[in-house]
Simulated assay, not measured.
Amino acid sequence: MTAVLGVPARRRQAPAPSFAHLARLSDDTGLLEHARHAVPRREHGYCTDDVARGLVVVSREPEPAPAVLRLAEVYLSFLTHAQDDSGAFRNRLSYDRRWTDDPALGDWWGRALWGLGTAAARSTAPWIQQEALYAFELGAGRRSPAPHAMAFAGLGAAEVLRRHPEHPGAAALLADAAAAVGWPDSDPLWSWPRRHLAYASAALAEVVILAGTAQQDIALRAAGLRMLSWLRGLQLVDGRLSVLPAAGWRHGSPRQQYDQQPIEVAALADACATAAAATGDPAWHDGVRQSIGWFLGDNDTGAVMWDRATGGGYDGLTPYGPNLNQGAESTLALIATLQHGRGVAGFRATGR
């Protein structure tokens, strides 16, 4: 069956996430950041940002295969090695196992707490849960001046609260994360706390929803839902996702169409799944379906954004189709998005 781009052609189920390429990018130290096509590029080394995201996706698996559980062990060991006694994290490790930066509280700190919190809440291995919670608690007392870093950390805090609802450190961090994001503007044409949309924007809306839910603050939860609804709406074109490019978008300036990054799609899928769980409204699952559809070709060029043979995700969508490199960030975004397909009915996608 064929269809015009953007017009639904048929209902089909999301493919199961594959961990084959993630295993290809991983070794006994961590997760290599970059690849040329499907071949890991050792010269670029490892980064805490990606290892933390790796721990998120492997910890989300309800029945992980032994190889996937082994990845969780490697990623957890990497993060605990990256963390200093104050709870901050280094981000970059060269292939010869030398840190090239000092501990700090950038995005990688937030993502590390996200990964640790997810492992503490969801891992099937008790020892991983225990060690992840210890490392999370060490880092959760710190605060970053960066809203994105705080949002990622808040996602980890929300995970800890899933298993430990009375955890004071997690509750305080989640509340502070929402405060760091701020309240959306009252202008319905720009329902966002800032005048610039950068990267992984849906994560900011998601942490506000989670904080409002945890605090039973109806107004705060509604603010997060309003942010997410507005963000999703401006990235829809004829029913398909056209996500903001890597350059972002500043209010009042021309909006670029490319290069679109898988991280935006994954963040939107996560946030829509959270909104569906928080509200009980299955209409939010449409955002998950559209995110899955983006990877399968329901996007601005009709390009499939993953390699079925390797299991890797392509690094970005350009005017000429996909960037065929299959690095860690894009592969993790693919896996994270497909994981949501388990709980969502068949979705609309287009063929070419």
Rank of each mutant, 00 (worst) to 15 (best):
M1L: 12
T2R: 14
L5Y: 00
L5P: 05
L5E: 00
G6T: 00
R12P: 00
Q13L: 05
A14D: 07
P17G: 04
L22W: 01
L22E: 00
A23R: 14
A23K: 09
L25I: 01
S26P: 07
L32H: 07
H34A: 12
R36W: 09
A38R: 06
V39R: 12
P40L: 03
R41Y: 08
R41E: 15
T48S: 11
T48D: 05
D49S: 06
S59F: 10
L71W: 10
E73P: 05
E73N: 09
V74Y: 07
Y75S: 11
S77P: 01
L79W: 04
Q83N: 07
D85W: 08
R90D: 05
N91C: 02
N91Y: 01
R92C: 09
S94Y: 01
S94H: 04
D96E: 07
R97H: 10
R97G: 04
W99Q: 10
D101I: 14
D102T: 15
G106L: 05
G115I: 06
T118Q: 04
A119K: 14
S123I: 04
S123Y: 05
A125Q: 14
W127C: 10
L133C: 02
A135S: 15
E137S: 15
G139N: 10
G141V: 09
G141A: 06
R143L: 13
S144M: 13
A146H: 14
H148Y: 15
H148T: 10
A151R: 02
A151G: 03
A153Q: 12
A153M: 13
G156T: 11
G156S: 11
A158S: 15
A158I: 09
H164I: 02
E166M: 07
A170Y: 00
A171C: 06
A172L: 12
A172F: 02
L173T: 14
A177S: 15
D185A: 13
P188N: 10
W192L: 14
R194E: 12
A198W: 06
Y199F: 09
L204P: 00
V207A: 09
L210N: 00
Q215L: 13
D217Q: 03
I218H: 13
W230N: 01
W230V: 01
G233H: 10
L234T: 15
Q235W: 00
L236H: 09
D238T: 08
W249N: 05
G252M: 11
R255V: 11
R255C: 13
Q256F: 02
Q256D: 08
Q257V: 14
D259R: 10
Q261D: 01
P262E: 06
V265K: 00
T274I: 03
A278R: 04
T279R: 04
G280I: 12
D281T: 08
D281S: 12
W284G: 05
W284C: 03
W294P: 02
W294D: 02
L296S: 09
G297L: 10
A303M: 03
V304A: 09
D307L: 05
R308M: 07
A309W: 07
Y320K: 08
Y320W: 10
L324M: 07
N325F: 01
G327S: 08
G327L: 03
E329N: 06
T331N: 01
L334N: 05
A336I: 12
H340V: 04
R342C: 08
R342T: 13
V344H: 04
A345E: 11
A345Y: 00
F347K: 03
